[in-house]
Nucleic acid binder design. Sequence first.
RNA 1: GCGCCCGUAGCUCAAUUGGAAAGAGCAACGGACUUCUAAUCCGUAGGUUGCAGGUUCGAUUCCUGCCGGGCGUACCA
Length: 550
Amino acid sequence: MKVENYLRQVFQERLKQLRLNSDAVSIEFEIPRDTRFGDLATNFVMVLAQKLKQNPRQLAGALLENLELDHAFVASVNMAGPGFINFKLSQTYLQKQLNEILQQGAENFGKSTFGKNKKVQIEFVSANPTGPLNVVSARAASVGDTMINIFNRVGFTAKSEYYVNDAGRQVRLLGASVSSRYCELLHVEEAFPEEGYHGDYVYDIARQIIEKYGDKFLALEQDRRVEELKNISLSMILSEQQKVLEDFGVHFDKFFRESQLRAGSTEKEVLDTLTRRGFIYESEGALWFKASEFGDEKDRVLVTQTGEPTYFFIDIAYHKNKFDRGFEAVIDLLGPDHHGYIPRMKAALKALGIPEEAFDIKLIQQVNLFRDGQFVKMSKRAGQIVSMRELVDEVGVDAARFFFLMRRISTPLDFDIDLAKKHSDENPVYYIQYAHARISNILRFGEEKGVRFNPGCDFSLLVEREEMALVKKMLEFPDLLIRAARNFEPNALTQYLLELAEEFHRFYHEHRVISDDLKLSEARIALSEAVRIVIAIGLKLMGISAPEKM
RNA sequence: GCGCCCGUAGCUCAAUUGGAAAGAGCAACGGACUUCUAAUCCGUAGGUUGCAGGUUCGAUUCCUGCCGGGCGUACCA
């Protein structure tokens, strides 16, 4: 049994004895920031005292008076400060829990039923298929992929999805841009489209098309040519995007194509439903959705004067489609430039009768690249961008993923390329990986000496402060993952692993694992193995390798 | 103008959703390798949490108003 549950029982009973309503307050525990306050603390007395209009310290005193706590769980208890109750965990409890962690192993430790099998979809990256992925996409990919892993670990059924805008104006512009470059390379003049794509990659695509197909598209009418070249370019760009993501270790359960959606009837269903409910009107030749009735600042066009569906309209249909597929919660990860979009999408789904809490949009803030201490200026219009491919090739998957996860998603991220490339103590990725490699090395050394991990070893030999600190830190892991999921904070995991690695490095310096004392060696190997497992789980959730040697 | 995000040590960021005396890393300075990996460890120094109010037992966290930075405010996507 976990100590929290034990204590909850004890105090609920105690409240009953004192004829206090135990339903009035939920007994929650937290780990105090300062170890001086013990290993576990609860503030429920203060919350309760406020409700009962009593003095919290007196109430806590009454609760603790003559209270006998089982030493299998708790070593000591005391009241502190304005009415906190602090507990020190017993060594017996920690030793038992270490065994428990090892029993659960890499497969199960950190798993929980928090998500109640809820079907969740997270959509991320979803870049236009009109050019290479950029560094913001890389951040989104790291975050999305990791959050999917965390969600699944804590009991959700989470699926990742990438929306491909392969229909509409932007891809037509791509086709026209490629066509113009294609002609140019073949010494035929064709005007470059206004608002076309200027990046060098457009020339690359045109060049590759010439290599493969020669000049045969010159013979076509311009419209035909643009259409053909659009399709070829699209599939080239898509496969490159998918390749980069794959190389980055990011897997998508589904690539959903806009063209596929357009072929179906979802758009019509959306329009019908909204019309039936009276949320659609015509004005100036366009069809409008009354978004302002649902909290958006103004109404939005769904069908333009020229009879074309707007991106927004299609996107409503796409989101309806997600819910039609049975997802109970849908989360979109968007770039910071899309935040004006949130109220209107929420308005549309509300109008369709989808529960408000079932849909959420998370914004991932921008990425600022620094090289040689200088801000790397990027301009999409001028085709001047650092692509995801370049960045990942330069700094490597592990460092890149870690750096993208290190910050809260709501904070703009300063990405120091030189630092990410450094194989030194300035680079936090290696700190964690080094702990893993170090443990692996100890285990190898142990085998040479004839000691290896023995699940039946004597855990009661582990009594040192650093040993207990490691167990306590590992015990935080399951709740940490829940917190990361609930708050959508992948950075909580990077932070945690740094702390765990730190505890291990400290332990390593204070105590020898493999010594002449066989029993103690076994116990410490077990402890080390547990740490290795937790680090390995954490790194895996983040898509970062756990090296056995460095 | 309106809306969203942000403001914490010199730099980059935390702070368990309102808890106790605000913590790490880097940079600076001083120490530790005959040992299972020094990509490590130990120590010193560094703060009016942008400013001013408010809510309360208690605020970096919630509310209001300023100041500063970023982004958005399309019949584009």
